[in-house]
Simulated assay, not measured.
Amino acid sequence: MAMTLRLSAEDERALAQLADDEGISRNEAVLRAIREAVARSGHEGRVAELSERARHRYADVLERLGR
């Protein structure tokens, strides 16, 4: 699917610098940034879920440690 990406001059310079630093096209730099953001977001969600489970499972221990 084709898409137009409108960037400010500052963001355009940042994208160009990122692409140049990585030796990739601007299109590839955008795709990688999107994929990394999705992976990071998914990871944070899994960590939050596991943390909640652990807090529930060990609530009595955490309560005692807090005294």
Results as ranks from 00 to 15, higher is better:
Arg64Ser: 06
Leu31Gly: 10
Arg57Val: 13
Glu12Met: 11
Ala16Val: 03
Glu44His: 11
His43Ser: 08
Thr4Cys: 08
Arg40Trp: 02
Ala48Gly: 04
Thr4Asp: 05
Arg55Trp: 07
Glu36Gln: 11
Asn27Gly: 12
Gly23Trp: 00
Arg40Gln: 05
Leu18Asp: 11
Leu62His: 03
Ser51Val: 12
Asp11Trp: 01
Ala16Ser: 09
Leu31Lys: 15
Leu62Glu: 04
Glu28Phe: 02
Ala33Pro: 09
Leu7Phe: 03
Ala33Thr: 14
Ala9Glu: 14
Arg40Thr: 06
Arg40Val: 06
Arg6Pro: 00
Tyr58Pro: 00
Ala59Arg: 05
Arg32Met: 05
Glu22Lys: 15
Val47Tyr: 00
Ala9Ile: 08
Glu22Gln: 15
Gly42Asp: 13
Ala59Gln: 00
Asp21Ala: 14
Asp21Thr: 07
Ser41Ile: 09
Glu63Pro: 01
Arg13Ser: 10
Asp60Val: 03
Ser8Gly: 12
Leu65Phe: 05
Ala33Cys: 14
His56Val: 13
Asp20Met: 11
Met3Ser: 11
Glu10Trp: 02
Leu62Cys: 07
Glu22Ala: 14
Ser41Val: 04
Gln17Cys: 01
Thr4Asn: 09
Gly66Pro: 00
Arg40Phe: 07
Arg46Pro: 04
Arg26Lys: 15
Gly45Phe: 01
Ile24Val: 14
Tyr58Asn: 14
Gln17Ser: 09
Arg64His: 00
Glu52Ser: 14
Ile34Trp: 06
Met1Gln: 13
Gly45His: 03
Arg67Cys: 01
Arg26Ala: 03
Ser51Arg: 13
Met1Lys: 14
Tyr58Phe: 11
Ser41Leu: 06
Ala37Lys: 00
Leu50Glu: 00
Glu49Val: 15
Glu36Thr: 12
Leu7Val: 05
Arg57Asp: 11
Gly23Leu: 01
His43Trp: 08
Ser8Ile: 03
Val47Ile: 14
Arg67Gln: 07
Ala48Gln: 13
Arg40Cys: 01
His43Tyr: 07
Met1Thr: 14
Glu49Phe: 08
Met1Asn: 12
Ala14Asp: 12
Val30Trp: 02
Glu36Asn: 10
Ile34Gln: 02
Tyr58Ala: 11
Arg67Tyr: 02
Asp21Asn: 12
Leu7Gln: 04
Ala37Ser: 10
Leu65Arg: 06
Arg57Ile: 08
Ile34Thr: 02
Glu63Tyr: 04
Arg13Met: 11
Asp60Met: 08
Arg35Ser: 10
Ala37Asp: 01
Val30Pro: 00
